[in-house]
Nucleic acid binder design. Structure first.
Lengths: 337, 337
DNA sequence: CTGAAAGCGCTAACAT
DNA sequence: ATGTTAGCGCTTTCAG
């Protein structure tokens, strides 16, 4: 026991010796180069597994000038980020894809970093690329990151540059279809609870809501910002109710806000969907955990995360990749509308 | 435009030249060695900031044989981990402390890693240490990590080894004091909603509850597992109500479960605290966001996170550190009890 | 297809 | 206090 920490690490040199070839050849097989004879390949492969050789990351990085690390940048307040199951699914997807690669994820929560250690760290080439999971108009530091390393965004960035890549859904359409569903059910006074309008997805879903309403010749209902949080959704709902014009339906731009709205509605003694129908967005686990269960516009969050990671990994490997990937949304009808 | 990615990275050599000293001296100031003359120090410092020098991690790692990386290991289902503000605060604290150091955080979500890429990655010395933020009895892979690198746990580990370090609160006492508060308020039939009993903190808070009750000569009320989740708390509350023996108070082992309980109680038409008093645990942002606001046993989650990181950093620096740090809890009285 | 040789940028004895 | 000198373990031309 306790000899563990000092095991001599096996180096490429020892593998080469064991296989009777040179370092270069070992390096070639480790990196999957084509030009290696079958016999050499076999000898090296055997030596590697016999010796349990694992390349040293630092040495590899230093020589190859890549870090095999990807930054996961979270430009959110920690409590908000952690509070939303949407991000849970996104991160889970990213992590799942990364776990299948040679990369590791470096976590950066912008918020806890008052100086800009993060920015300079990233700029200095300490990661090969970055995934930026959300994006506010006010996040200026993001541009500096994008100047320094390849970036993939979750959601179309506020200022799209030529070299930007992103994964998104069609938020306008999602918002429109959610609202159209409400309209189709005969609702006439449809309010909406939006995310922070500094975020593109929030604005776009609002646009979709507006398009549906004007398209149907219906008046625009109340618009309140719910900040993409549970509490924010509840407060927005209360403001809508307090405003006088009682809606008969509400489109909440996230399930989390829809949950808040549900609670506010319940407190106000209103029944869902009878008095007020509610439709959410995400189809997160929340949708089925509330009562009544949530009718919602589904987006494939886990896949979005996976796709973000895949996109970046492909780019880093030099594989041509489209600049954006728009994932499908779809209506999921349950009890609340 | 687009010249950005190829900026010549400034090396220690260039800093040395600019400062008129040798590489070694630069290295010394970068690493905070004492034996540098004031004048040299100043020249180097200036050169560093003029040139905007940031040391190359790979080179540093290779030469110094440390990785300057710390693994953040999350042995939880992603949705659960991200769903609890307690973890949000913990991670925030860890991240804040790490941001002040030379280390970076590598994120590993055990759950998304069916093989054991993570374990072998960590075992191969790719990180200098690991922080394991939660711990279930069933998590066997954790031992393998602890065999390979220095570890700090969030919460006393299930099997404590000689070389383990952890940050915790006195959960037994916290549970006891919360329950004693309820008793002091005249409640006689006190139920509890526990976390999963595979987790030490859950068991200990249950013990505290039991101790308080037996200490006061009161009968043990209902015990239901709420899985440390919102929904779990609501269901546990429903089971308690359905069981026939109506409690006049409930100790929920986390604020999240308390929130679930509050909703279940409201649905059942029971008033809080008049019909049933509710006390939580954590004093997370949830406590003030629910109605009625939550009386709860506070634990300093952010500080716990910071302390976990500090402990590991100190250990890695060879600074003697006590094996455990028990942080204080304290009652916060609000409306729910 | 393979080996030799030259570093990648930094730290850490060892001198001085 | 500071400079010199070896590497750390690997990738990558460049010859052959």
């Amino acid at each position: 026991m306790a000899t563990e920490r000092l095991q001599a690490p096996v180096t490429i040199e020892e593998v080469a010796a064991a296989a009777g070839v040179s370092r270069s050849t070992v390096s070639r097989v480790v990196n999957g180069a084509s030009s290696v004879s079958p016999s050499a390949l076999e000898a090296v492969t055997k030596a590697i597994s016999d010796l349990n050789y694992v390349p040293n990351r630092a040495a590899r990085s230093l020589a190859s000038r890549q870090t095999l690390a990807i930054a996961l940048v979270v430009p959110e307040e920690t409590t908000r980020f952690f509070g939303d199951p949407f991000f849970a699914a996104i991160v889970s997807g990213i992590n799942a894809r990364i776990a299948r690669s040679d990369y590791v994820l470096n976590l950066f929560i912008a918020n806890d970093d008052p100086g800009d250690k993060m920015t300079s760290y990233l700029s200095r080439g300490n990661v090969d690329g970055a995934i930026i999971v959300s994006h506010h108009t006010s996040d200026t530091f993001i541009e500096r990151i994008a100047d320094a390393v390849p970036v993939v965004y979750g959601g179309r960035p506020v200022k799209l540059r030529d070299d930007d890549y992103y994964v998104d859904v069609d938020n306008v359409r999602g918002g429109r279809e959610a609202t159209e569903y409400l309209i189709g059910r005969g609702h006439k006074r449809i309010a909406t609870i939006t995310g922070p309008l500094t975020m593109r997805a929030a604005m776009e879903r609002l646009t979709g809501w507006r398009d549906a309403l004007t398209g149907a010749g219906l008046p625009l209902g109340a618009v309140e910002d719910g900040n993409f949080t549970d509490d924010g959704g509840a407060e927005a709902m209360r403001r809508i109710l307090a405003s006088g014009e009682k809606p008969d339906a509400v489109f909440a731009a996230s399930d989390l806000m829809a949950r808040g709205a549900l609670h506010a509605l319940a407190s106000a003694g209103l029944r869902v969907p009878e008095d007020v129908a509610v439709i959410g967005f995400d189809d997160s686990p929340i949708a089925t955990s509330v009562t009544p269960s949530l009718t919602t516009m589904r987006q494939p969050s886990f896949l979005q995360g996976e796709e973000m990671a895949s996109m970046l990994i492909d780019r880093l490997a030099g594989i041509p990749t489209p600049h954006s990937r728009i994932m499908p949304t779809g209506l999921v009808v349950r009890e609340s509308a």
